[in-house]
Structure formats: structure tokens, C-alpha cells
Simulated assay, not measured.
Amino acid sequence: MGTHRVSRSIVIDAPAERIFDIIATPSRHSEFDGSGTVRHAVSGPDRLEHGSEFGMDMRMFGVSYRMTNRVVEFEPNRLIAWRHIGPHRWRYELEESPAGGTRVTETFDYSFRFPAYYVLAGMPARNAIGIEQSLLRLKDVAEKAATD
């Protein structure tokens, strides 16, 4: 991975398998998206695996659009990353703690092409806020699933 990335972590009181199941299910992405851009899944499998393609209805700055993503990294219950038409990646890494819970790290890696554009457009700061909110929402969804 390059140096141009935004990354945040949170500890979730849930096993990695439960958290990974949520992340690997495209129809659930809007439940934990903290950026406000993900609307709903429009195509793809029920559960992601390496090489899966999935389409999402999105909305940013008042403009609706569709984005197709492809899973480019995949280790069940540990790592999943996807990219869309651009080369940058969204990555989730999960690490269970022997003391309980799972540390989840979400990273937006924009080091692959035109990193200066992302910096000038203010994307790192905007992505950091969205990632922080996404992790809090993922925590709520995963921990609530244990009580349902």
C-alpha cells in the first residue's frame, strides 16, 4: 500500500465472522455507510468473494449515480477490499482480540493514481469523517445483531 491513505479503527464487541458477514453483504452496505453516499445494492451476489462485482446506487453532492465495484482482496473473516473504475481501494481488516471483540480497520487507499487530486479536492478529510461514522454505524449494527 502507498502512503496516500486514510485509515481509522474501532473495537467492536462481536466476533470477526459476524462483522465480516455484514461487510461482505452488499445489500447491507447502506446500513453502515457513514458518508451518506451509499443508497442500495443494485447488482451482484448476495455475498462477496474474491473477484465478485457488485453495483451500488450512490448519491454525492446532490447527484445520483451508479458505481460498479470489484473485490480485489479477500480473506474470509479477516480482509476484504474492493475498487471501482478508479484504482483506489476501500479495505476492511478485522483482527479478533484474545480478550474479546474485534478490531476493525477501514482504509481508503488513494495512492494508485492522481493522489494530488484527492488532496486538493479535500477528500482525505472528508473520507476520514465518513470512515469514522461508518465504523460507529458498523459497531452498532454488529453489536445489535447479538441481541436480536
Rank of each mutant, 00 (worst) to 15 (best):
S30Y: 03
S30C: 01
S30H: 08
S30G: 08
F32N: 05
F32R: 05
F32P: 06
D33I: 06
D33Q: 05
G34K: 13
S35W: 14
S35R: 04
V38E: 04
V38K: 03
H40F: 06
H40V: 03
H40W: 03
V42A: 07
V42P: 01
V42Y: 02
V42F: 00
S43P: 00
S43L: 04
G44D: 01
G44I: 04
G44F: 02
G44V: 02
G44L: 04
P45R: 08
P45C: 13
L48E: 07
L48F: 06
L48T: 00
L48H: 01
L48R: 00
E49S: 09
E49N: 08
H50G: 09
H50C: 05
H50T: 07
G51Y: 04
S52H: 02
S52N: 07
E53Y: 03
F54W: 04
G55R: 00
G55K: 03
G55S: 12
M56A: 07
M56Y: 07
M56N: 03
M56T: 01
D57P: 05
M58K: 04
M58C: 09
M58Q: 01
M58R: 01
R59P: 05
R59V: 09
M60E: 09
M60C: 07
F61M: 10
G62P: 15
V63E: 14
V63T: 14
S64E: 13
Y65N: 02
Y65R: 00
M67A: 12
M67Q: 13
T68F: 05
T68V: 12
T68G: 06
N69F: 10
R70V: 15
V71H: 04
V71A: 00
V72Q: 04
V72C: 06
E73F: 04
F74A: 06
F74T: 11
P76W: 11
P76M: 07
P76A: 13
N77S: 15
R78Q: 13
L79T: 03
L79H: 00
I80E: 03
I80V: 13
I80W: 05
A81S: 11
W82H: 02
W82Y: 02
R83H: 09
R83Y: 01
H84M: 09
H84T: 05
I85L: 05
G86N: 08
G86C: 00
G86F: 01
P87F: 12
P87E: 10
P87M: 14
P87I: 05
H88C: 08
H88R: 08
H88V: 00
R89I: 07
R89F: 11
R89D: 10
W90I: 13
R91L: 14
Y92P: 09
Y92R: 10
E93T: 15
L94R: 01
E95T: 14
E96G: 14
S97D: 15
A99K: 14
G101T: 05
T102E: 08
T102Y: 01
T102S: 11
V104R: 12
T105N: 08
T105P: 11
E106V: 05
T107E: 09
T107M: 10
F108Y: 10
F108M: 08
F108W: 07
D109V: 07
D109F: 02
D109R: 03
S111W: 03
S111H: 14
S111N: 09
F112G: 15
F112I: 04
R113L: 08
R113I: 02
F114E: 10
P115W: 06
P115L: 06
A116Y: 15
A116D: 11
Y117V: 15
Y117Q: 09
Y118K: 08
Y118V: 13
L120M: 14
